[in-house]
Design a binder for these strands. Structure first.
Lengths: 352, 352
DNA sequence: TTGAAAGCGCTAACAG
DNA sequence: CTGTTAGCGCTTTCAA
């Protein structure tokens, strides 16, 4: 509840625009104007109003303002919420830009659950937010979301919904970047290269797998299913650990491995080292993401960096722009594909 | 904006409670009741209302409801926002419990900035949230926050403000847990034990330093300032890296080090290994937190676990309770101090 | 430049 | 059990 001030009988009462108006000797309309359009009132009026605001400790009530203005100045950020810290810098950047732009950030974790998606669809339809940012590989499948873009601007980060035009999309060229990572391995003299794909069925995971195949094909190398260690349920340590079992089970081992995410790479490396395999001595590893931990691991992980903070900033700025111009028709959406960057560290060895 | 339906002339219009009432042949009050207190209307009325809701695609407008009910069903979660992924599971747990309880989660990163604190104080005073959870070592110093607990319930996580009663507090016994960590080192035969404190001036960092000293004193060991490597600006890798310089500069090296956070420990270990120092062969390291990465590092980090998820759940449940009973006077606050747990892994060696 | 008045969509008294 | 009525606090025409 808003600020209160003592009543005549000592009972606390919330300070409203009425109180300010009375105190400043003007109408409520003038107080409202002095706040929203300071140029539209005389110098003297403005001073009187702001003095009254200070004296009363007035803060405009958000609900009343939203109801009247039909805008809540809030955005909904939807995350997968699998406990992955990949999104920490993204959320950080989003919060920064949105707050700067005068918007609050409501977060929601979809957890791949239908009921949670329905819940957040309802939040949107209740007019609780002016825009939506979906930061997840798994875009909500709820039918309710289909109607969302008609009501508030919505953007996608890190993955797109092919064939749609109503969202802004901010992602990277997962396929191209993965191919580049594998090309680097090839350039270092590796010929037998394995891949640990990400979460089965996800668009990003598929794209990265595609890039891996592209690079192999380009170089005239065979694509060997025995070297594609599927079964990841997520972009996490456990999936890397699981892949290590495939590695150990294999007679003819690869000299290098491309993991679809840093955490997968780290989990894999740890398991290999436990098994007495040296990295990059015996096998080289390259990751994807450039998470905080990549550089601090031993050996420091060579990886493809996704510009997470920059993507967050750009996506937020775009949504801000679209929300601002939402009243005059559907503002144009953007498709921004940022470049990844190979970060060479210590986990890949040059062959022969 | 809320759901819309085509008007007579095709223009989209938002569906209001009026539309539902008209369609169901009842008054708006009855619709409101059918939704909020289903038992207070006849079976037939309820059916008619829900049918009308379904047919129109009605979703109650959040702003109107908040304005009238003087409750937004939202909480503000304030994080430090230094990009630290320590808070990822905490935020996850909070979101889960709050959503379950029918509350939305608005996040804010204070970034130790005065202006941002003022901003969020204003959000609270604007009545935008029904409760506040401060998840940070640095509690807002803004005067505006002083008045907050009178208006909405507020809780603190991970650190307290000594001498205050108006907040619920969920934390761990940083001092006791740290002493326990150092006692473990002593029990393993270590006598010359160093400490890397956390962010200078923070309550938690001080407590952990205090615990370190306690354990040393208990064992009759001297407290040597040369073994307390101050200067951390944060609980991060960089601080561990920085401490490694002190280590290398020292002639008479310690056999064990207690780092005030896992990330500090990891940064320190990495720097030592780079310098050819073996862990735990040459020096043992123990951390604090039990972050996701502790177990996957090489060597896996022995550390004191803070029950982050559980703390998040409990804190959220407590705030939920307090918000529910906020109308009838100031509900009682809780002080919950959860136990930490020593997780023994590979980074500490048993001496001679 | 300012004020009066209407009303955003909903809930809560109060009658009936 | 249901309807009527008032009004939450604010912004925005419309007139003056």
């Amino acid at each position: 509840m808003p600020t209160r001030e003592a009543d005549a009988d000592g009972a606390p009462r919330t300070v409203t625009i009425q109180d300010v108006a009375r105190r400043a000797g003007v109408s409520t309309a003038t107080v409202s104007r002095a706040i929203a359009l300071p140029d539209r009132v005389t110098e003297a009026t403005r001073a009187a109003v702001f003095a009254a605001i200070r004296e009363t400790g007035y803060t405009p009530n958000a609900a009343a303002r939203s109801l009247r203005a039909k805008s809540t100045k809030m955005v909904l950020v939807l995350l997968p919420g699998i406990g992955n810290s990949f999104f920490t810098p993204v959320l950080n950047a989003l919060e920064e830009v949105f707050t700067e732009g005068g918007y609050g950030v409501l977060i929601g974790y979809t957890r791949q659950s239908r009921s949670r998606e329905t819940h957040y669809a309802r939040v949107i339809r209740a007019g609780q937010v002016d825009g939506v940012l979906v930061v997840t590989g798994n875009v909500p499948r709820d039918e309710e979301f289909v109607s969302v873009p008609d009501t508030v601007p919505m953007s996608l980060m890190f993955s797109e919904i092919p064939g749609t035009e109503q969202f802004s999309v901010f992602d990277v060229d997962n396929r191209g970047a993965s191919a580049e990572a594998v090309r680097y391995l090839i350039a270092q003299g590796h010929r037998r290269i394995a891949h640990i794909p990400g979460a089965e069925g996800g668009l990003e995971a598929n794209e990265r797998l595609g890039g891996y195949c592209d690079a192999l094909r380009e170089a005239g190398l065979p694509i060997d299913e025995a070297l594609i260690w599927r079964g990841a349920s997520n972009f996490d340590f456990a999936s890397g650990d699981r892949a290590a079992r495939d590695f150990f089970a294999l007679a003819d081992k690869p000299t290098a491995v491309f993991a679809a995410a840093d955490e997968i790479a780290l989990g894999f490396m740890r398991a290999l080292k436990n098994g007495g395999v040296s990295i990059p001595g015996d096998v080289s590893v390259i990751g994807f993401d450039d998470t905080e931990y990549a550089v601090h691991y031993d050996p420091a992980l060579t990886t493809m960096r996704q510009p997470r903070t920059e993507m967050g900033r750009l996506a937020a700025a775009d949504l801000l722009r679209r929300m601002a111009s939402a009243r005059d028709g559907s503002p144009s959406t953007s498709k921004v594909r940022l470049p990844c960057e190979l970060v060479v560290r210590e986990s890949v060895r040059r062959m022969g």
